[in-house]
Design a protein around this nucleic acid. Structure first.
Lengths: 174, 174
DNA sequence: GGTGCATAGTTCACTGATGGAATAAATGAT
DNA sequence: ATCATTTATTCCATCAGTGAACTATGCACC
């Protein structure tokens, strides 16, 4: 079943539900569409990462370090940025250290802390691996005008804004 | 860290990567934004489902049956619609049957098949549970004009279209 | 009408990602 | 000096999801 067919079926399903519960907001379809798309993009990412024996959490962690001029961060900080628990971050760090992509050592200033830093080898790895994702990434947005991009960005940010409110109002865990 | 802060940080991160690898498409930020939003929406859904002891896979399966006038489907069909493997669908069906929300029996026409049908109790359950999700769902899209909705839908569909092509061209598993 | 192949579903054993509680080391506050 | 807090790690548990083997049924073809 193609993604488009799936979306069409989704709309039908929502319509079916609304036949029984008319108060159901149609926005549910947009939510599900978003989630379905995200799943596919995620699959796409993991498909490109598999040959490099990286999962997405490890990839995001490595990329966060790569994105910094000094290539440095701490587990606690990376937990926040990559939305991972501390337990996981330890495991991710183990994996990346074992592969020589990062180093891990105690911090000089605060010896409770651990400093993680991308290695030269890690940088080379990213330089080599990342570009292989570009062609398909471009295809995903093929046919998008600059206006489309701006529009999508604006709408997604609007959504993000509302979601933030939501979390605050209800005191949700995440 | 709020979602908006996270998105801003994400943009910075991408900018940092582009400093080292200028060919990196900025669309990566849109991808990640989408994924991040989807995660939050997912969290939101599961937050509302937890009190009912349902996970999202079970919920989607139940809703698919609910959306049909006759409330009937088969495991195979539900696998396609809910993007689950057959093994999982068996487990999901087990869980829903045990709770009396659906029935499961052999098909009359084709005795290889199994027929899953939502029960009256299952319908009542959905009627009671689903509306509790509406208020927050509405908040997520608060401030969205009809034009915004149409626009978002259009752009997401465009994305879906491109993603479909992608899968076809590369012969990916999903 | 029997043989062979395809389909549908289940079972079992496994993986892989994540989470929680308890712990250790270091820091800071009083 | 002591106690609470922060940071990271370890261990154990969970949960969704997967792959391979198996069963039962149906379909096609000769």
């Amino acid at each position: 079943m193609s993604l488009i067919d799936h979306l069409n079926w989704l709309d039908e399903g929502i319509a079916g539900v609304r036949a029984a519960i008319p108060e159901m907001p149609e926005d549910a379809a947009l939510c599900r569409t978003l989630m379905l798309l995200s799943e596919h993009i995620q699959t796409e990412f993991e498909y490109k990462l598999r040959p490099y024996k990286l999962n997405d959490s490890e990839f995001r962690t490595l990329m966060t370090l790569f994105s910094r001029p000094d290539g440095i961060s701490t587990p606690g900080e990376l937990c926040v940025f990559t939305s991972q628990g501390a337990t996981n971050m330890t495991r991710i760090a183990n994996a990346l250290v074992k592969r020589g992509l990062i180093t891990r050592g105690p911090s000089a200033e605060d010896r409770r802390r651990v400093v993680m830093q991308i290695t030269a080898s890690g940088r080379r790895f990213v330089q080599k691996m990342l570009p292989t994702m570009f062609p398909r990434l471009k295809l995903i947005f093929s046919g998008f005008s600059d206006a489309d991009r701006r529009n999508l960005r604006r709408l997604l940010r609007k959504l993000a804004n509302n979601l933030s409110q939501l979390e605050y109002e209800a005191g949700d865990p995440p």
